[in-house]
């Protein structure tokens, strides 16, 4: 259903999953998932814990091997490509688990996202324009930032990669509502400026519906429901998420 959304004429969709099966070790976590993200589109991936949302992101980035189906990144089949190759194709990732090098400085954390140190000055400027606090914290160890600051550093680093497709995993988790609103604004601005497509894994429904064009609910490794964004969808989605 979702992958039938027509891609923009000429450009292949930044991300397209067809009938994807994947998981850790012997146990599949995703069972035949199909999902696509069109250029400039933001899709929210919702669902309760343990339903396979992070697994889907890791599979899209080639961190987990594909057990079945196809993943196309910008039209290129990703099977057999290392994450390094996929990142070079324009995929940025803001992970949720162990997302930073806590013992490295903020500057080194950002530096690792760049191909070369030549772009460092421009990249740091760009990051600081979205997140001004970073400018004064470059020499500080990332682990000493507050929880909210760390989340912003994760996002700043992913944006510094100048991705065509951004994968974001639970960026709003544990944040104050004001910070969540800032992050939503930054994601929308990034899309408006650069046309970045995004797949946003979220538990915070209001945040997700606020930034996304479309949403899909993952349940037990399958797409259970999907639809366009909008306030009217809130009740329908909550049915899937609550106890």
């Amino acid at each position: 259903m979702l992958d039938e959304t027509a891609p923009h004429a000429g450009t292949p969709p930044p991300l397209q999953l067809r009938d994807v099966t994947s998981g850790y070790g012997a146990a599949p976590v995703l069972h035949g998932v199909s999902l696509s993200v069109a250029p400039g589109e933001i899709v929210a991936l919702l669902g309760k814990n343990g339903m396979g949302k992070t697994t889907l992101l890791k599979t899209a980035l080639g961190i987990l091997p594909l057990k079945g189906g196809t993943v196309l990144v910008g039209g290129t089949a990703s099977a057999g490509l290392s994450p390094a190759r996929l990142v070079a194709l324009g995929v940025g990732y803001a992970p949720q688990e162990q997302p930073l090098f806590p013992d490295l400085t903020v500057r080194d954390n950002l530096r690792l996202a760049l191909r070369s140190d030549r772009d460092l000055a421009a990249g740091l400027d760009h990051a600081a324009s979205s997140f001004p606090f970073l400018r004064d914290r470059l020499r500080q160890r990332a682990g000493t930032l507050s929880g909210g600051e760390q989340k912003m550093l994760i996002l700043a680093r992913a944006l510094m990669m100048r991705p065509r497709l951004l994968l974001v995993d639970e960026i709003s988790e544990g944040l104050q509502p004001s910070v969540v609103a800032r992050i939503a604004a930054i994601l929308r601005a990034e899309r408006a400026e650069r046309g970045t497509a995004m797949l946003v894994v979220e538990q915070n429904l209001d945040f997700a519906l606020g930034v996304a064009d479309r949403w899909a609910v993952l349940k037990r490794g399958e797409i259970d429901d999907a639809g366009p964004s909008g306030p009217a969808m809130r009740g329908r989605i909550l049915e899937h998420l609550s106890i």
């Binding site: 538990q203 429904l205 998420l241």
Partner: peptide, 29 residues
């Protein structure tokens, strides 16, 4: 967030606003 926030029967927990909030992502640790 590392704390035990609720301990009760199934009915008590299911009806709790706190749990809804935890799972909808609106609660802050």
């Amino acid at each position: 967030g590392g704390r035990l926030v609720l301990d009760g029967t199934v009915a008590e927990v299911v009806d709790s606003d706190l749990v809804r909030a935890v799972y909808a992502g609106a609660a802050h640790a």
